[in-house]
Design a protein around this nucleic acid. Structure first.
Length: 488
RNA sequence: GCUCCGGUGGUGUAGUCCGGCCAAUCAUUUCGGCCUUUCGAGCCGAAGACUCGGGUUCGAAUCCCGGCCGGAGCACCA
């Protein structure tokens, strides 16, 4: 007992220091953002970005902006505009404001013009290959020497040019030791139709440009992003310098590798279109909606991401870890039921006690939830895989000997079963049951039968099928219940 | 190739900034035990790591140098 008291005491301070390192810079009025590209619904990788942002905002009472980065019409998947907020809500991430970059083109144009006027950006009419050749050798391209007037004139005509004919470049350092940093593109021409803008604009900002402008204008105090943006951060700082803006605090985190599912959004989309996957919530996908459908709790993902934190080292998260954590959440909430896969109807020969109602608690640790009642009269369904020679105890009912096809009554007392360490197996009554299908994590299906009490469940309920595992009720069909399997 | 960034048990982390309190934390995992009834759950217990080599120091997971391994970026994508 004493131990318990001590444990509670020492646990408190521990919970406080979880995961996230303290934010550098100011903690007052922080403004953070989550800025996905709307190419599909959110997957586990997105939570890597969304969760720490949300958590910092929560801890410091700051502001979180959801900024939809839809400046590449070719990569916009229209339903994603709806799906992203839904996914965030599930995750428990609450944005204070939602902004679409596609609403902000005039702002980008305005800043672009200012840059040109400052001589900090120039219209470049070189073709890509030529520019790269020069740039890689620390040579400025001829356009770099254009006068402000010439640039302004070209800028005005930009809209009338052919896609690919010119771009707007931000001046950096043509001798920068990393060629990637040298004079990057800020604006390009794009003829593809945009889902929200149609063909209203042809001049599109590049990510590095729109991101810098927005981060500044929206008052971001800290920018959290993957270390794949390290070079972009350096590029963007040149723009801040040109404009005389203060640079926010940048924090870069490592890559998150997800065991098994290396599935990119574009691959998933292909698979859905060709019928390989049933949809964005196919159990094989790593989307948040697929994970949710399987009964993985948002808190499991959220906590795991916080635990991983924002350090630069890469990390790999395993399903084992997710399942283990999730089980801790599910264990107390999931009521227990019997399910038999590939049910075999059997008769217990020699059983003469007649019909009895077997009562078994919905959850052994929560007796207040009551019992379920299973009528037993010597005839039951067993899972095919459980029918093996030997002595078994039908849970809470009787002990039987199985010998090939023959199943005979042995005894009723539990002690007899214990004495021989008989395996205790679940069963389903003949007269009160329901067809059950369980969709597994690899999309295969377990077909079987479950006890009648399952009929009281509602979609979304999570149960534990004893000796099978945890599953979430996904659909109540006319003649069967369809579950999605979470884990053991 | 060039530029940059990492490296604590199987996995994720704490500790690294400001060397000793670290024979290294917690979780997951694996294994074992327990259980008047899930030996696929639960409960209890155990196992398992500082990338390597030098250096500095009385003392290094922590500081320095080098190697090895891993990752990212090098677009008119985000």
């Amino acid at each position: 007992m004493e131990k318990l008291g001590v444990e509670v005491e020492t646990k408190k301070p521990k919970a406080k220091e979880t995961g996230l390192q303290e934010l550098p810079g100011t903690h007052e009025n922080i403004v953070l953002r989550f800025a996905p590209n709307p190419s599909g619904p959110l997957h586990i990788g997105h939570s890597r970005a969304a969760v720490p942002n949300a958590e910092y905002v929560k801890r410091h009472n700051g502001k979180l902006i959801l900024r939809i980065e839809d400046t590449d019409p070719k990569r916009v998947y229209e339903p994603a505009y709806e799906m992203i907020p839904e996914d965030l809500e599930w995750l428990g991430v609450k944005a204070d404001e939602i902004i679409y970059q596609s609403d902000r083109f005039e702002i980008y144009y305005d800043i672009a013009r200012q840059l040109i006027e400052k001589g900090a950006a120039y219209m470049c009419t070189c073709d890509g290959a030529t520019f790269k050749e020069l740039k890689d050798n620390c040579k400025p391209c001829p356009c770099r020497d254009n006068s402000v007037e010439e640039n302004l004139e070209l800028w005005e005509k930009f809209d009338t040019m052919q896609a690919g004919e010119a771009v707007l470049r931000v001046k950096t350092d043509i001798n920068h030791k990393n060629p990637a940093i040298r004079d990057w593109v800020a604006m390009r021409l794009e003829d593809a139709e945009h889902p929200r803008l149609g063909t209203k604009y042809r001049i599109y900002p590049m990510m590095n440009f729109s991101v810098s402008v927005d981060d500044h204008l929206m008052g971001l105090t800290h920018v959290l992003r993957g270390k794949d943006h390290l070079a972009n951060t350096e590029k963007q700082k040149y723009l801040y310098d040109h404009m005389g803006w203060d640079v926010p605090e940048y924090i870069h985190y490592g890559r998150l590798k997800m065991e098994d599912i290396a599935l990119s959004t574009s691959k998933a989309k292909e698979g859905i279109e060709d019928g390989t996957y049933s949809g964005w919530d196919d159990p094989r996908l790593g989307t948040l909606r697929a994970i949710a459908r399987r009964g993985i709790q948002a808190k499991t993902i959220y906590d795991l991401i916080i635990e991983i934190g924002v350090k630069m080292a890469d990390s790999a998260i395993s399903w084992k870890k997710i399942y283990g954590q999730n089980r801790n959440f599910l264990e107390p909430i999931a009521n227990r039921y019997f399910f038999c896969e590939n049910p075999q109807k059997i008769t217990v020969e020699g059983y003469t006690e007649g019909r009895v109602d077997i009562e078994r608690p919905l959850h052994a640790d929560h007796m207040d939830r009551g019992n379920r009642v299973l009528p037993f009269d010597g005839e039951v369904y067993l899972a095919q895989s459980d029918i093996k020679d030997g002595m078994f105890r039908l849970m809470d009912a009787v002990n039987v000997d199985i010998n090939g096809e023959e199943i005979t009554y042995h005894s009723t007392s539990f002690e007899d079963a214990r004495a021989v360490k008989a395996r205790i197996i679940q069963w389903v009554p003949l007269e009160d049951n329901v067809n059950v299908k369980i969709v597994m994590d690899d999309a295969s299906i377990k077909t079987g039968i479950g006890e009648g009490a399952l009929k009281n469940l509602e979609v979304g309920d999570i149960v534990q099928f004893e000796r099978v595992g945890f599953a979430r009720l996904d659909e109540i069909a006319d003649d069967e219940l369809i579950f999605y399997f979470a884990h053991k």
